[in-house]
């Protein structure tokens, strides 16, 4: 490990190991401020801001309402090390950068992916684009929705549109017979969107290299299918493109 990555690791530890603040006078995280001076990466500026967040453990008795974004919480504003405008600039730049990019451009050389199964078909989703997993599928079907929407369910106070993944991925094969056989047990959440994919089985989370994927060049037909993982011979999802397509075809803002 280089000195630089050491700093990143220590910063990671500092955040995770942040002790609950006592009810006494608020102490400034001295060590952390020093660490921040050593580095200027946008991510770490973000980490510094996060440090102002009141730890979850403080209000164990009265769980606080989760802020929609960690950046909006500002119960006790810390000394800001880098000015707001700088932080904003970085954020906007990152947004533009990721908006229309292809999955393989967003991923590191080596990345983790979760493999899951639907109607005999295996699909992979990069962990960095995964929003979470719900361990049940309890949806309410609303009239007038496309057939590939299984229904909506509420998860952590958020409404999630659950996609009937088999119907979405292979509409040509999806008949009443197949529909009867599919036994959805989990919902794979897509980033922080309102969309989740119903699936039958979670297989494994595995590290894969970008070179182990056959990336599709022309994605006009199925933009959500970024490529094929060679070893497992399964499709890998471009979550960003998928959310976009689901939102436009489901007439729901993702």
């Amino acid at each position: 490990m280089t000195e630089h990555s050491d700093i990143a690791v220590v910063d990671f530890f500092s955040r995770l190991l942040k002790e609950p603040q006592s009810s006494g006078p608020v102490e400034k995280p001295k060590v952390l401020v020093k660490e921040a001076e050593l580095t200027l990466s946008a991510e770490q500026v973000g980490l510094q801001q996060l440090l102002s967040k009141v730890s979850a453990f403080d209000e164990k008795d009265e769980p606080p309402k989760e802020p929609s974004s960690p950046f909006t919480s500002s119960k006790s504003k810390p000394e800001i090390i880098v000015s707001d405008s700088t932080a904003k600039e970085t954020e906007t730049a990152a947004d533009i950068g990721s908006e229309k990019s292809f999955l393989h451009q967003r991923l590191e050389g080596e990345f983790q992916a979760l493999f899951f199964k639907v109607a005999g078909l295996t699909l992979a989703v990069p962990l960095v684009e995964l929003g979470g997993i719900i361990h049940e599928v309890r949806v309410t079907h609303l009239p007038g929705q496309p057939t590939w929407i299984k229904g909506v369910m509420t998860h952590r106070d958020q409404k999630i549109n659950v996609v009937d993944t088999a119907a979405w991925v292979m509409p040509e094969k999806y008949d009443a017979n197949l529909q009867k056989q599919v036994d959805y047990r989990y919902v794979v959440l897509l980033q922080n969107s309102q969309w989740g994919l119903a699936c039958e089985e979670l297989l494994d989370a595995e590290s894969i290299n970008k070179e182990q994927v056959n990336w599709r060049v022309n994605t006009a037909k199925r933009p959500w299918l970024a490529g094929l993982v060679k070893k497992q011979m399964c499709g890998i999802l471009d979550v960003g493109a998928l959310i976009e397509q689901l939102s436009s075809q489901g007439h729901i803002a993702g």
């Binding site: 190991l17 996060l50 440090l51 730890s55 979850a56 979670l202």
Partner: peptide, 24 residues
């Protein structure tokens, strides 16, 4: 454990104090 634990880094890794859950 469960397979879903593989998503903890992504889901909760940015929250302060998330390294102390098991101790608690």
């Amino acid at each position: 454990a469960a397979m879903a634990l593989a998503t903890i880094d992504r889901q909760l890794g940015h929250e302060d104090g998330m390294g102390l859950v098991l101790r608690n």
